[in-house]
Amino acid sequence: MKGVILTAVSILCVFGILNLGYYQDWFVARPETYWNEFQKQKDEGDDLVARRTERYGVAYTISMKIMAAIQRKNLAHPVVLFEPNSYYRDSLHIYDKLRAPEPAVFYYYTGIEGVWTNSPNVAKANFFVRISKKGVMLDEIKSPQQLQQILAFYKRYPPIL
């Protein structure tokens, strides 16, 4: 009988904690949501790209599209120049939704070298990614002059994460 009483007390304690202030909000927002995600994920199989896409979001999708486009061009040492994220923040005002991956993370996603406008390796850039409200574009940089023009345009915008 005492065991039953103590078990009832345990249930009350657990129930009390799970419904206590922020714990309740957190439990619904996190573990419960994760459980619902688990219910979906367990049937989805082993599609690693899908899981990465879901987890890493737009930056990963863009990176993979850039990789696919570059692979089609079959260039030996592609180096991709990204616009500074401060340009998206201060000029295009899309920073909340979208930002360019930092070169280290881009390399992790794709195995392709990326540079920012202030990078010591920026002179090696032979591709340039432009993001606008219309979409993402990948241009080939054909001459050092073209690269200098691009860098001059973004001089006002320092690279940020």
């Binding site: 930092e102 070169p103 280290a104 390399y107 070298e113 990326g114 540079v115 920012w116 202030n118 990078s119 010591p120 390796n121 690279p159 994460l161």
Partner: peptide
């Protein structure tokens, strides 16, 4: 990895 632009990170 160490040959790329790591300006933005010290996590390496």
């Amino acid at each position: 990895f160490f040959s790329i632009d790591l300006w933005s990170t010290n996590n390496q």
